[in-house]
């Protein structure tokens, strides 16, 4: 029997996402270094293994919550969002969303279709002031499922936060694919519960 949609092992995606934050920190660090080192000295070749191999020391970097890292992650999410939206609508041209492009309906599309594709579950709560501001709440954010710091809960929360920018970017990307500009503030309300405060220009 052939599968309808091609699939891969979920572990591949999990491990890829897990490595996105260390990668963003490493990239930021290297760009800073090569900037500071000026032109005359050649940038040393990075070795495949370094102090952070198999370790998690890199998450203690002061760059963890830096604007550069946040921006890279949010940006990755954004491009995932734009394209994921296309994939979902292309796959299901009967999708309810196409019959009604009201903002509230687009938000429902994110809560239902987008979230299910990404995390295998729907968003738990959607609130709005009916003036363009929305709050989306996920009671148990799947990316955080296995996150558990050897230090304590506070450390877990501190190091989880950058990962939330990926999802935040995804939401912004999906909205943009419907022509909606937005400003999104993600928050870990009560680990592993998260919320996304979305302000739109509509």
């Amino acid at each position: 029997m052939t599968e309808i949609t091609p699939q891969v092992n979920a572990t591949c995606l999990d491990l890829l996402i897990n490595e996105m934050v260390p990668l963003a920190i490493r990239t930021t660090r290297e760009l800073k270094q090569s900037y500071e080192q000026a032109i005359e000295s050649l940038v040393p070749q990075i070795s495949i293994k370094d102090e952070d191999t198999g370790d998690v020391e890199i998450l203690n970097s002061e760059l963890l919550h830096s604007e550069d890292v946040t921006h890279k992650l949010e940006n990755c999410g954004y491009s995932i969002g734009i394209r994921l939206s296309e994939v979902l609508i292309y796959k299901d041209s009967q999708n309810e969303i196409l019959k009604n492009l009201e903002l509230l309906n687009i938000m429902k599309f994110i809560c239902r279709d987008v979230w299910r594709e990404l995390y295998g579950k729907q968003m738990d709560n959607l609130r709005t002031n009916h003036r363009g501001t929305f709050v989306l709440i996920d009671n148990a954010f799947k990316t955080f499922q296995r996150f558990d710091s050897p230090v304590d809960l506070q450390d877990t929360i501190y190091k989880c936060k950058p990962y939330l920018w990926i999802s935040s970017g995804i939401i912004r990307g999906v909205l943009k694919s419907f022509g909606v500009d937005s400003l999104i503030t993600p928050e870990i309300t009560k680990f592993p519960m998260v919320s996304f405060n979305i302000q739109t220009n509509v």
């Binding site: 949609t5 091609p6 699939q7 891969v8 092992n9 979920a10 572990t11 591949c12 995606l13 890829l16 996402i17 996105m20 990668l23 990239t27 760009l31 890279k72 940006n75 990755c76 999410g77 491009s79 995932i80 394209r83 994921l84 994939v87 594709e117 990404l118």
Partner: peptide, 23 residues
């Protein structure tokens, strides 16, 4: 094996590569 849509995986990886190319 728990599975996910391969397209989601492909475009997540694609976003990582694109970001590195930009950076």
């Amino acid at each position: 094996v728990d599975k996910v849509n391969a397209e989601l995986f492909t475009l997540t990886y694609g976003s990582v590569v694109a970001q590195l190319v930009r950076d």
